[in-house]
Amino acid sequence: MSVRRGMWSAGTGDTSGYGRIVREVVVATPAAGPLGSWYDSVRDRLATLVADPFVKVVFEYGELTFHIPREKLAEAMWALRDDALLRFEFCASVSGVHYPQAAGAELHVVYHLQSMTHNRRLRVETACPDADPHVPSVVATYPAADWHERETWDMFGIIFDGHPHLTRILMPDDWVGHPQRKDYPLGGIPIEYKGTTVPPVDERRSYR
């Protein structure tokens, strides 16, 4: 995803002597080969119900993630909920993640589904570019996603097409900006103590 150099956060001179440390950040390597347990059958079943549904399938930390293109999302969600072999009837959570480094797929929406019938959990992830932040709404499939999508719009500025009432939910209605995005500053004020000033936490130099 990106390459990091040195120990200190950007914007300040790295005086640590570790400037030649280079670390590559790789997010979500696609899984190769069979996954075992129920994971393969769910993946294959979705692939038969929806044509070409995956950008990639990731299996990390014992959790299965389907990266689904946004064009297929609504269709895939219907299938995941209604198909007798899938039956992910419960949408626990929708949230966003902002990866400003990932060109063309900066904004991710993460859905956590739960099958109570089969006692399985699944993560569905979809991405959209910052320039065109549109993702189809899944409220028609999962009414539980209603407020979660409003929160994701509020915090990340992702527009959920087809959402019945996409308004701000946590921030005041006239707020400018979407606070959880990485380009939005944390805010805060300098703290003065005993005559010296400590800058707000997002302006301090810190370890990566």
């Binding site: 790789v26 979500a28 990390e60 930390y61 959790e63 626990a92 993640v97 959990r121 993560r123 370890y207």
Partner: peptide, 13 residues
């Protein structure tokens, strides 16, 4: 500085 946590995501209910 704290410890570093490997890349990835987890959801624990």
């Amino acid at each position: 500085e704290g410890f570093r946590v490997p890349v990835g995501q987890a959801y624990v209910p």
